[in-house]
Nucleic acid binder design. Structure first.
Lengths: 141, 141
DNA sequence: TTGGATGCAAAAGTTTTGCACGGTT
DNA sequence: AACCGTGCAAAACTTTTGCATCCAA
């Protein structure tokens, strides 16, 4: 499978490449951690592009639907966060002090999934693992 | 540490044993999976006890504060769910078909946590692992 | 040109809060 | 009696939706 630009990817999925949609994806692609709809909204405004919050939500909805973006809710927070779907398995390390979110690459639980499948007779299709702790700066306090 | 009743536990934490607080804890203790504030609200009404939703929220807040209850948000859903804190490590298996939530006992990632600690210099204090899949009934469809 | 995308305003859903009153210790 | 807990109403906050208009293909 050949590498696609985001525009080609959108086209293939029947989505138009609008200015707003591209701006949302640009922001998400650049982040290495998930952010909220409102943060995306503010960042687009800072780029001097006018946009409505509902447009952000509507775009995120279709992008999640088309699997280009993943929607997550991290514990403790009532709002959802979104990240660009790099088709890479990721986990997060969330600092309980400053709320900073760090992405972690490797995943230890493939074997665990198989074990649970045979125990429960479920078909497991995915999982979510978040770690909570304190970053070096917040440990001090 | 001697086994305490819920009332003793409340007293020790400086919380009064009110009818409503006890009802909320009774419900949570009986469940083996987390439920929402609204579900708790409805169950208490079914017990023919009048209660206000905000009372449920306020109680859940203090109970979480005192570590008697854990607040979680499971992916996909915008609302929080709560469970009685049995001081046992639990993970969940969520059926993407019928949204049923199953608790899973054992946890495979203590070693993984240590590894991440040395890699990142964070102090890890906990984690959350949810598995997603389809239960035997929903697999068919 | 045409159907998807957007802005705006309003609604819906969840959670929080102010204040007066009630109940537990 | 003192103070925590509660009901009620309103507010705050996040997310969704209806409808008219706009714009990318």
């Amino acid at each position: 499978m050949k590498k696609m630009t985001i525009q080609e990817d959108l086209k293939e999925k029947g989505l138009k490449s609008t200015k707003h949609r591209m701006a949302i994806l640009d922001i998400l692609v650049k982040k290495d951690h998930p952010i909220s709809a409102e943060q995306i909204f503010f960042e687009i405004q800072e780029m001097d592009v006018a946009i409505n919050l509902s447009t952000v939500y509507r775009n995120l909805e279709v992008l999640v639907e088309k699997s280009m973006v993943t929607k997550l809710t991290l514990s403790g927070d009532n709002r959802s966060v979104y990240e660009y779907n790099r088709m890479v398995h990721r986990h997060y390390l969330i600092c309980l002090g400053c709320k900073k979110i760090l992405a972690i690459e490797h995943c230890p639980i493939k074997k665990y999934e198989q074990q649970i499948e045979s125990e429960t007779d479920y078909k497991i299709v995915g999982h979510k693992l978040d770690l909570y702790g304190y970053c070096p700066e917040c440990r001090e306090k």
